[in-house]
Design a binder for these strands. Structure first.
Lengths: 220, 220
DNA sequence: CCTACCGATCGGTAGG
DNA sequence: CCTACCGATCGGTAGG
């Protein structure tokens, strides 16, 4: 075995995907050359193209890989928010934490939304369709019971919130880079998003009720 | 005169800038070739480079042009929100309207924040520094009088809000492209941003007071 | 503002 | 997984 720089033989495919998300998130798809990704892994561009066929196919696989990752993590994120008092708030909080902990994918997502909104929309429906449907059903139940605003479109709402979360996390990070400030108000930021998500969804009276509950509830 | 496709002789420079913002916003700086911009105007790439020297210089001038535009529009945006009951809300609303009406520049801004946060930060300080200082002073006054949260960093807050507004406007637009939905809840969206902006800034009691005032105030 | 031209880089193929 | 190679496009220059 002549071997490359690595001890292991053939996780190269995996490593290409990882470097690609990173570089796509940092510099965009157009701003990242095949050679740059290959070099980051330590192989030649022709080797990368042996695995992925074309740059566009690499693009697709990177996307599919991220959506797959999210599909696998979603149950955990949802279940982790189950125990709390204010379940809605903690769910949104979990989503914020989730994206904050995975900034490459969050950044990739934001860029994809800018570059090819329709294509990524289709991908999402394919990979996360059932989950979206599940949550949409809950939303529609809430509408019938009068808790949720009648003018809320479930699909639209979901996209909007996810985008605000991913966008805020990504761009707030960029803001810190500008100001040199450490995210000293990240708690407040999260709170702001939670309230926004709530106000967009619930009718005013119920939203107010949730706040009262959350604020007046005992610490435990 | 052999003339180009246009009646007028030499607003070419201006037209290059306009097409460039549009294309940079749509496809990003890296995703836009000099030739593409030139073609959109109806000239050769060498002509574009005659006016702007290099692609990077075009980039700078496009940025400077947008910031200049914002500098000129800011007074109007601020003054238009003066008359209303809840001045803070209407100011944020004006900012939302402002970006919504100028999606190319909003999109450019979001992309710049992703691509080169530090550089655009510097540009902003140069072009909009005095305005930022003005608003920051107001915020700091509010902190001393106890109306504004003590943990708010004025600069950081401003960036954050502008980003959320520009990001939400831009990406919500993208969302519509995915779902085919017309922004049927755009009013609600704006309201959500206003509340978020408020909650991030004001202490809870004052924020609640503003809401009460706004809701209980007579229609006129 | 154009014609003519260039070196570098790009994504990609052949062939092993 | 590499070497060798390619056509196309890119940003940019010369010279008018």
């Amino acid at each position: 075995m002549k071997a490359g720089r690595q001890g292991r033989p053939s996780d190269v495919r995996r490593r290409i995907l990882d470097e690609a998300v990173r570089l796509f998130a940092e510099n965009g798809f157009q701003g990242t050359s095949v050679q740059a990704v290959a070099a980051a892994v330590g192989v030649k561009n022709s080797s990368l193209l042996y695995y992925f066929g074309s740059k566009e196919q690499l693009h697709e696989e990177v996307l599919a890989d991220s959506l797959d990752h999210w599909k696998n993590e979603l149950p955990r994120v949802i279940s982790e928010s189950t125990t709390s008092r204010d379940r809605f708030a903690s769910l949104v909080e979990e989503v914020v934490k989730f994206f904050a902990a995975d900034q490459n994918r969050a950044g990739l997502f934001v860029r994809e939304m800018l570059d090819r909104p329709k294509e990524i929309g289709a991908h999402i429906r394919v990979h996360l369709g059932p989950w979206i449907q599940l949550i949409a059903d809950y939303i529609n139940m809430g509408k019938q019971s009068g808790i949720i605003r009648s003018n809320v479109d479930a699909d639209y709402y979901l996209f909007q919130i996810i985008l605000i979360v991913a966008g805020t996390v990504t761009l707030t990070n960029a803001t810190s880079a500008i100001l040199g400030t450490e995210s000293r108000s990240s708690m407040t930021m999260t709170e702001g998003i939670v309230r926004m998500a709530r106000d967009l969804l619930f009718v005013e009276s119920y939203s107010a009720y949730l706040e009262t509950t959350a604020m007046s509830a005992p610490a435990n």
